[in-house]
Amino acid sequence: MIELKNLTKRFQTDKGVLTAVDDVSLSISKGEIFGIIGYSGAGKSTLIRLLNGLEKPTAGSVDIQNRKISAIRGVELRKARQKVSMIFQHFNLLWSRTVKENIEFPLEIAGVSKTERNARALELIELVGLTGRENAYPSQLSGGQKQRVGIARALANDPEVLLCDEATSALDPQTTDSILDLLVSINERLGLTIVLITHEMHVIRKICHRVAVMEAGKVVELGDVLSIFQMPREQITKRFVAQVTEAEDASETIRHLREIYPAGELVKLGFIGDQTEQPVLTELIRKFPIEVNIVQGNISRTQRGAYGTLMLQLKGSEEEIRAAIAFLEDRNVRTEVMTGV
C-alpha cells in the first residue's frame, strides 16, 4: 500500500544542513493503523508531509498504491492528494463556514455537484456522530467536535489513506479516547489505511497495529505494537513504553524498597496475551518457600492483545530465588532482575 525507500529530507538552515529524515525505509499494509512516534525534532512531522507531497524528498521515494508521490507534480499530484487526506492537531477548519459547509469544501474544490455534496456531507456527519450539529459554526463546537468535523472533511473524497498529524494532542484524555475510538471504527468499517504521528504512547497502544519509533531522523525501532510493549530494544522505546506501563514513581519506589529490604531480589515480570489471565503468581507462592511482595503492576491493552507488567520483591535463600525465577521463565514469563536501580 505505502512503500518508503531510503527516504531522506535535508533542509538548509542558518546553522548548516539539517537532516530531518535520514534514510527511512518501511512498508505499510492496506487497512493498517500504523503509528510513528518520537519526541519533538525526531523528524516525524516531516515524514508525514513527505507522504502527501507537501515536501519533496532530497533522496529516496514514496509510493502509495503504485503512485510515486515523490515524483509527480501539478494536476497529477493534486488528484493523488484527494486519495491521501490529512487531519491536524489544531483542526484547520474554516471558521466562517458551518459544519456541513466545512465538510463540503473539498468536494466543492473537486467539482462535485451541490446535490452530491449535500448528500455526502450528511452521510459523513452521521458517521462521525455530529447529527444535529450540521448548521453549527466551529466557534460553537468543543475540541472533540471540531476534530470530528476535521475527520469528516478528510473522508469527503473517499480517500485510501488518512494521515493524522498529532490529531489528539490538543484534546483532553477523555475526548482523545473518543476520537481514537472513532478512528478505529472508521478503519474497520471503511478498510481505510491510517498513518498517525504522535509523541504519546497511549495513542499508539490504544489503536495502532504497528509502530515505528523515530529519533534524530531515523527509524530506530519498528514492529508490532504488542511485541514492542513486550520487549522494547532501544532506550527511547523503553521510555515511551514506560509512559503507559509503569507508575511515574516506580524508580523511587524501587529505591525506597531497596533501602527497607536490602536482601532478596526485585524482579520485573512481563506477561503477554493469555498469560495476563493465568494464576502464575499463585503457583509461585505455593511452590517455593519464599516471601513475595507485590511492588506495583499494570495491564496495558493494545489492538492485538494485552500486555502486563508486575514488579515483585522476592525474599528467601539465593537458591530458592533462582529456582523461582527459573520457574517463571519456564512459564514463558519474561523476567528481569532489577539490578543497579
Rank of each mutant, 00 (worst) to 15 (best):
G150A: 09
T58P: 10
L124F: 12
A154K: 10
E160H: 14
N187Q: 13
I321F: 12
V17C: 07
N102P: 09
N6Q: 11
E291Y: 09
V213I: 15
I260D: 01
R81I: 09
T13G: 08
N52A: 06
M86K: 04
Q65Y: 13
L310Y: 04
K44E: 05
D23R: 04
F240G: 02
G16F: 09
S70R: 07
E283Q: 15
Y137M: 11
R239S: 15
S113E: 07
R10T: 15
Q12F: 12
E215A: 12
L226P: 00
V21Y: 08
A121Q: 04
V244Q: 03
T19K: 09
G144M: 06
F288K: 05
D181F: 06
G35K: 05
F34I: 02
L192N: 00
V128D: 02
L192V: 01
A323H: 13
S29M: 06
V267W: 06
E188S: 11
S227Y: 03
K83D: 12
S40C: 12
I325E: 02
A242E: 14
A216T: 14
M311K: 03
E252T: 11
K315F: 02
K5L: 10
T335N: 03
L4K: 01
T237K: 10
N332Y: 12
V333C: 01
I87C: 02
P289M: 04
N293R: 14
D224G: 03
M86W: 00
G111R: 12
M214Y: 08
G41V: 08
G297R: 00
K268V: 05
L4P: 02
L180M: 15
V184I: 12
G41N: 08
D249W: 03
S40D: 08
Q235S: 14
L328F: 05
T176P: 01
V341A: 15
L127H: 03
R322E: 13
D158C: 08
K146W: 08
I197E: 00
V203F: 01
G16A: 10
N298Q: 11
S317I: 05
A121S: 11
Q145R: 09
V295D: 01
E234T: 14
R255T: 14
V149C: 07
M1H: 08
K238W: 04
D14K: 15
C208N: 04
G143W: 10
L124Y: 09
R81E: 12
S85A: 14
S113Q: 09
V21M: 05
F11V: 15
E283H: 15
M86Q: 05
V62P: 05
K15C: 00
Q12H: 12
V128S: 02
S96D: 14
